[in-house]
């Protein structure tokens, strides 16, 4: 198929450097205000980084793109904010006012904020909207890809399956979805609470999607999963991830779904993230 993503010579090393920077920036914001979802943002850091830096096309320094990104797991938006800041779409001032009066950034993305293409937060809305966007691009003759990141928990929403079921019938090969499969939801590990959820990849194949699995913390693998796709169908990349990835005491610990570290915890977190560069 024709290459309509950003690059096929993706620098995974540079991606790892960026992801370290983004995780530290999120931790920095966590010291301003206690309200943020760190665990879910760290779990999809590499996924969202790869979408913005490896897949979505941009023109020069212009942040405008023919492609669209929609964060269906709205609670993971902290990683989107710090990337948009890095791209110059949001400002440092915007992040300084995160969750504060007078600011525009909250715990879930809000349509109308620069770089935010849809309001999400309630789970199970994003894939249908992404499908509508992809269909609009396709039928309006625009060469746009729509990238959508879902949590594995929200895949349990019936509305997500409605969209899953019909996407292939609508021929939206420009719809590219990623599942942040950290196997965690509020009341436990998904493989324990809902064992029949797995194997999830088969369910997408059954509904006419192309579906692949990859290490969701390996930027090169995420990029290649899209770059090497067969095409002609909507694509689901099931990204195996770790909630709270990058900080040992956060990894797979539910408390870090929505909690900010104290000063000592912060220092340790930064040491560990920096240490991963060594």
């Amino acid at each position: 198929m024709t290459m309509n993503f950003r690059s096929n010579t993706y620098d995974a090393g540079a991606a790892r450097d960026r992801c370290r920077k983004y995780r530290k920036r999120i931790l920095e914001v966590s010291q301003q205000v206690q309200a943020l979802h760190i665990g879910g943002a760290f779990s999809c850091t590499e996924i969202v980084d790869t979408i913005y830096h490896g897949l979505m096309r941009r023109h020069g320094t212009n942040p405008g793109s023919p492609d669209t990104f929609l964060m269906s797991k709205g609670h993971g938006c902290m990683i989107q904010y710090v990337i948009l800041e890095d791209l110059g779409v949001l400002t440092r001032h915007d992040l300084d006012l995160y969750c504060k009066p007078g600011g525009v950034l909250g715990c879930h993305p809000d349509y109308g904020v620069p770089g935010i293409e849809a309001s999400t937060g309630s789970l199970g809305h994003g894939l249908s909207m992404a499908l509508g966007m992809a269909y609009a691009d396709k039928t309006q003759g625009k060469d746009g890809n729509v990238y959508c990141v879902l949590s594995d928990g929200e895949v349990q929403e019936g509305s997500t399956w409605e969209a899953t079921m019909m996407a292939s019938s609508f021929g939206v090969s420009n719809l590219i979805a990623f599942m942040d499969n950290n196997d965690f939801q509020s009341l436990g590990r998904t493989h324990e609470t809902h064992p029949s959820f797995y194997p999830v990849i088969d369910k997408y194949v059954a509904f006419g999607w192309e579906a692949v699995e990859c290490d969701g913390h390996d930027p090169g693998a995420i990029h290649d999963a899209v770059a090497n796709r067969e095409g002609g169908k909507p694509l689901m990349v099931v990204c195996k991830t770790t909630k709270g990835k990058g900080v040992s005491y956060m990894e797979n610990v539910p408390m870090w779904h929505y909690r900010a570290p104290n000063k000592e915890e912060l220092e340790q977190a930064i040491r560990e993230i920096d240490g991963a560069a060594a």
Binding site: S128, L131, G132, Y135, A136, A163
Partner: peptide, 23 residues
């Protein structure tokens, strides 16, 4: 003309997605 089948939640979500693209 899109018939989504018996899937009203997605009907509204898809309509929103179309509108977000200017339709």
């Amino acid at each position: 003309f899109l018939n989504v089948g018996v899937a009203e939640q997605s009907m509204i979500g898809i309509a929103a997605g179309l509108a977000l693209k200017g339709c």
